[in-house]
């Protein structure tokens, strides 16, 4: 086809619907909130949530994933524009990362060897990892689909960030249910679940977000 013919054909098509990043961000946030809300409505929050938060370690369980989620969502929305780069913003991850590592190391140092990994068992791992992985399915799928409307020029990175957003978002929600407050447990296994989702999403997005 001659290029002028192509142009004539393209110009005859109706104007696109505008892409509103705030609305896209809102819809993405909703895709995480919905499964978490259903989960918490069915199973309830942990017993005595308010009292549990008086332990200074416990709020981190929710706040660190929430921070990671917000940061990643902002980066996902930024990368929707083809000319955008992540750039120095990636250093903001140092905050939740260092905090999580500090919690882990401090807990390791404080606890006697027998108490360190006492919670680790088939049931507790299945509950923690399983819940986060299952809860993350819907937001990852929804967000990848939404991101296809955008024009990321870094598909794998965008998809990884979508996985990170979704998994850390639902992990923050799940933490309101989870009653295991040992950082050696939650840092390790929330972290593992988040990394798994991030990796799977990156693999899926390599193809899905290409255009």
């Amino acid at each position: 086809m001659h290029t002028d013919d192509l142009i004539a054909r393209l110009a005859a098509q109706p104007a696109p619907k505008p892409l509103s990043r705030p609305r896209l961000g809102g819809a993405m946030a909703l895709s995480m909130l919905a499964p978490v809300a259903v989960f918490l409505l069915v199973l309830g929050t942990r017993h005595n949530l308010v009292a549990a938060w008086s332990n200074p370690v416990v709020p981190f369980k929710t706040l660190l994933p929430l921070l990671t989620c917000g940061l990643s969502l902002a980066l996902v929305l930024r990368l929707i524009r083809p000319e955008a780069r992540v750039g120095a913003a990636v250093w903001a991850y140092a905050l939740p990362l260092v905090a999580a590592l500090a919690l882990w190391v401090a807990a390791f140092a404080q606890r006697p060897p027998a108490a360190r990994f006492a919670e680790v068992g088939v049931f507790s791992l299945a509950e923690c990892l399983g819940s986060i992985l299952v809860l993350a399915v819907v937001p990852v799928v929804v967000m990848l689909r939404m991101a296809r409307r955008g024009a990321t020029t870094a598909p794998t990175l965008s998809a990884a960030l979508i996985g990170l957003t979704a998994a850390s978002g639902v992990a923050a929600g799940y933490s309101l249910f989870c009653s295991r407050d040992n950082p050696l447990f939650f840092v390790t296994w929330y972290g593992a679940a988040i990394l798994i989702v991030t990796g799977v999403s990156a693999l899926a997005g390599r193809r899905l977000l290409r255009w």
Partner: peptide, 27 residues
């Protein structure tokens, strides 16, 4: 023509608050 098609399919991703050229060159 591939590039023109790409510009066409992604023309809604140009944010008017940002300059056009970097968008164009990135695509």
């Amino acid at each position: 023509q591939d590039v023109l098609l790409g510009l066409h399919l992604k023309r809604h991703t140009w944010d008017e608050a940002h300059p056009l050229r970097p968008w164009l060159y990135a695509i």
